[in-house]
């Protein structure tokens, strides 16, 4: 399955404590970079009202949704605190400063 990892760009193309969007046929994927340079990928939709998580403030290994301040864990995709809900995670890995997204999940094959 190694052929389904796609190079989506360098880690340094995402600001620390920030996020960028990768467009796929099944919707936007938000790719996050934490203060410690860990990289995570989530579907760019908050489980609450579909807010774009890529636009939120990234802190620790969480992101706060810009629409109604739900806090989503980047490693689990789950809402924190009192809120309940989960957004889909995508496998990502970093090799030699490049970020690879597993498109087997991001790009469901039609055929």
């Amino acid at each position: 399955m190694s052929d389904t990892w796609i190079d989506i760009g360098g880690v340094d193309e995402i600001p620390q404590k920030g996020s960028r969007v990768v467009k796929t046929t099944s919707g936007d994927v938000a790719v996050f970079r934490t203060v410690n340079d860990e990289v995570f990928a989530l579907r760019d939709r908050c489980p609450h009202k579909g807010g774009p998580l890529s636009q939120g403030i990234v802190h620790g290994t969480s992101v706060t949704c810009p629409l109604h301040n739900w806090v989503i864990g980047l490693d689990s995709g789950s809402a924190q605190g009192q809120d309940k809900g989960c957004t889909r995670r995508f496998p990502v890995k970093v090799e030699a400063g490049r970020i690879y997204l597993d498109v087997a999940l991001a790009l469901p094959r039609v055929a």
Binding site: K23, T25, D28
Partner: peptide, 14 residues
């Protein structure tokens, strides 16, 4: 500029 552009566009790839 990074704020306004997607990092990658995989829709073409598919």
């Amino acid at each position: 500029a990074h704020e306004f552009r997607p990092m990658a566009n995989l829709t073409f790839k598919q």
